Simulated assay, not measured.
Amino acid sequence: MNRKIFQVQHAPFKKKLLEAGIRKHQSVIDDFKKSIKELLGGEGLVNEEEMDLSQQSFNTEQVQKANAIGDQVAFANEEMTLLNNMLPSIEDIHDQVTLGSVVVTENRIFFVSASIEEFEVDGIKVFGLSTQSPLYQEMKGKKKGDKFSFKDNHYTILDLF
Rank of each mutant, 00 (worst) to 15 (best):
I69Q: 01
V28Q: 13
A76E: 04
I22W: 03
I109F: 03
A68Q: 11
L83Y: 02
S113F: 15
G70L: 15
N59H: 05
Q26G: 05
H10T: 09
G123V: 09
G44I: 05
S130I: 06
Q96F: 07
K33E: 08
G42T: 04
L18S: 14
E120M: 12
N84C: 03
K15G: 00
A11F: 06
T81M: 04
L82Y: 02
I109Q: 09
K14G: 08
V121M: 03
K15H: 10
L45N: 05
R23V: 07
D71H: 13
I36E: 00
N47V: 04
F111Y: 15
K24G: 01
V8K: 15
S115D: 09
Q96H: 10
S115K: 10
T131A: 03
D122Q: 08
F32V: 01
A68Y: 03
T131E: 14
L129K: 04
D30S: 15
K24E: 07
A74H: 05
D31I: 06
N85F: 00
P88C: 15
F119S: 10
V121C: 03
V104K: 02
N84Q: 13
P134Q: 14
A11M: 02
A68S: 12
G42I: 14
E43K: 08
E38H: 14
N67S: 12
Q96E: 11
E106H: 13
D95C: 00
K24Q: 08
L87E: 03
Q72E: 08
E78T: 03
I22P: 15
Q56L: 05
N59S: 07
V112E: 02
V126G: 05
T105V: 05
R108W: 00
Q26W: 00
A74F: 08
G41E: 15
D71T: 07
T81A: 03
Q7A: 07
H94I: 10
Q26E: 13
L135W: 06
V73H: 03
V102F: 00
L18P: 01
K33D: 03
A11K: 12
L40S: 01
G123M: 02
V104L: 09
L82T: 04
D71V: 00
L83N: 03
Q9R: 14
G41M: 08
V73F: 13
K34Q: 08
L17E: 10
A114Y: 04
E118V: 08
Q132T: 06
V102C: 01
L45P: 01
L99F: 06
Q64E: 13
L53G: 02
D95I: 15
I124V: 14
Q72S: 13
V121S: 04
L87S: 02
V112C: 05
H94N: 06
Q55R: 12
E106D: 09
D122V: 10
F13W: 07
D92N: 12
D71G: 13
G70E: 11
